[in-house]
Design a protein around this nucleic acid. Sequence first.
DNA 1: CGGGTTGTCAACCGATGGGTTGAGAATGGA
DNA 2: TCCATTCTCAACCCATCGGTTGACAACCCG
Lengths: 123, 123
Amino acid sequence: MADQLSRVFAALADPTRRDMVARLTDGDATVGDLAAPYDVSLQAVSKHLKVLEGAGLVTRSREAQRRPVHLEAEVFELMTNWIERYRQRAEERYQRLDDVLAQMNDPTGETTETDTPMEGTAS
Amino acid sequence: MADQLSRVFAALADPTRRDMVARLTDGDATVGDLAAPYDVSLQAVSKHLKVLEGAGLVTRSREAQRRPVHLEAEVFELMTNWIERYRQRAEERYQRLDDVLAQMNDPTGETTETDTPMEGTAS
DNA sequence: CGGGTTGTCAACCGATGGGTTGAGAATGGA
DNA sequence: TCCATTCTCAACCCATCGGTTGACAACCCG
């Protein structure tokens, strides 16, 4: 299919699945438990769970007829790693941009710390 | 359409779009610049950009014929807020579970205090 | 003006996604 | 053994997605 990061993002792009994940932080739950709040068939919930499982966000075991669902929260790090990496890169760049702008406004070499007077006036 | 959080997750579920976002952390870029590395039409890239824009991850301005694309990294927080919230809930629960297991293995009543003195005694 | 550059809009196409219903597998309990 | 419970598999439906091509809008420049 696709890489895991894509599958994780895709899995969480659905509000129902996000809600399931949220509720699983309260502890494991059966498919029926998970399905209860939603106005859809059990089969639909079962499909959602397969998506979450495919993304590695969830694992399932067996317990009599029940299939307890367990949240695997470590996968969250896959996303936070990606996000933080680029958030940080973006921030660093803004910092450099601010420096450049400060230079342009005050080319004496001593940067006026604090307020970056201009802001959107590129070009 | 859908809520913004869903749109952001969905936008980043595509590897091409993630790569675009990644490259935009190096600075604004035109549609052509962004399209260059990929073996797809300019129109396809234009569509990807509309998705990113719809998610609020990107804004576009005008500069002669060009349409510079600018990354709006603040939106990342939407995700990190959600993720951290539930990652933390999950962790807390694991801590409580560990406490319970410690109790079961050592029912003398005095928890083998390693760390986090309180925390698990709610409800 | 006319032409080149840059990008969007519109229509279409095949694949995928989220939903349904119907059938049945797996297990526990009477 | 037979039944109830819990859940999955399979087929289908329709909307959306990512891609295409073709037309054209917006802008600069000679």
